[in-house]
Design a protein around this nucleic acid. Structure first.
Lengths: 126, 126
DNA sequence: TTTAGAATTAGAATAGTTCTAAAAAAGGAG
DNA sequence: CTCCTTTTTTAGAACTATTCTAATTCTAAA
């Protein structure tokens, strides 16, 4: 693994922020001022193809790159904010219910984040 | 609802094929030869915003538009083919495990479709 | 009818991402 | 080390799905 790959992987793994390629690029620039956005994409794609990072695809926004560690995502339906959740037994559940061998799954749960919920409640009570 | 909207909704609802905007466009052209792709997008977006259809976002392919009727998706990790599955109790499960009020969820299960699985098995046995 | 709002059109524009070809760097064999 | 091959990086062009813009047409209510 090249130094860029290694560093990019470290950035992804040590962040809990669901970074975009551009955000990774800016973080890389701090360590490697000469790096170019295309190299970030190259490396993110390679890492993703090797199964070392995840790619989180959302509506109307750039893709996010995420550590592999098992977790799922809550997406606020109002502001779009992403947060992590941990669910148990889902793979087993899906396999049991469908009969297929699950390689992996991608679950996004739409909800209202506490801030947006408060705003909604506030609006409603007026 | 305008006639375009109505017709596009019918196309989505009567198809089990997870159509792209372009595919919807071609189907619409059969009935409405003058329609333009932008109008298809306008209407798909409107229908989606009104919550009358779903949008299925996948990696490296145009968005698919799908009927609302409750179901989830299997995605073949090899050929990308999409199929429907029906799961029970997932919303309840997620709510129980996370404590949030689930508005909806989007689940894509990666697996090998029968054809691709056969091809893999074949390869391995050689 | 007239008018206002909505829908449609054509085509330009956008944004995120990928591609291309050349240059640089890394790795291995001798 | 030196040569050779492969991989990675770079710069910038290109791509593509989608959105935007502004002008036009349609619709339906008053």
């Amino acid at each position: 693994m090249t130094s860029y790959s290694k560093k990019i992987l470290d950035i992804i793994n040590s962040s809990r922020e669901h970074l975009t390629a551009e955000q990774v690029y800016f973080k890389m620039k701090e360590q490697e001022p000469k790096i170019v956005l295309a190299s970030v994409y190259n490396n993110l794609n390679r890492l993703h193809a090797e199964g070392l990072i995840r790619k989180v695809i959302l509506e109307n926004c750039p893709d996010r790159y995420d550590r592999l560690e098992k977790h799922d995502h809550l997406v606020c339906s109002r502001c779009g904010k992403l947060s992590d959740i941990h669910l148990s037994d889902f793979t087993a559940q899906i396999e049991k219910q469908t009969g297929v061998k699950v390689l992996s799954y991608d679950l996004k749960v739409n909800y209202l984040c506490p801030e947006c919920r408060a705003r909604e409640d506030n609006k409603r009570s007026k």
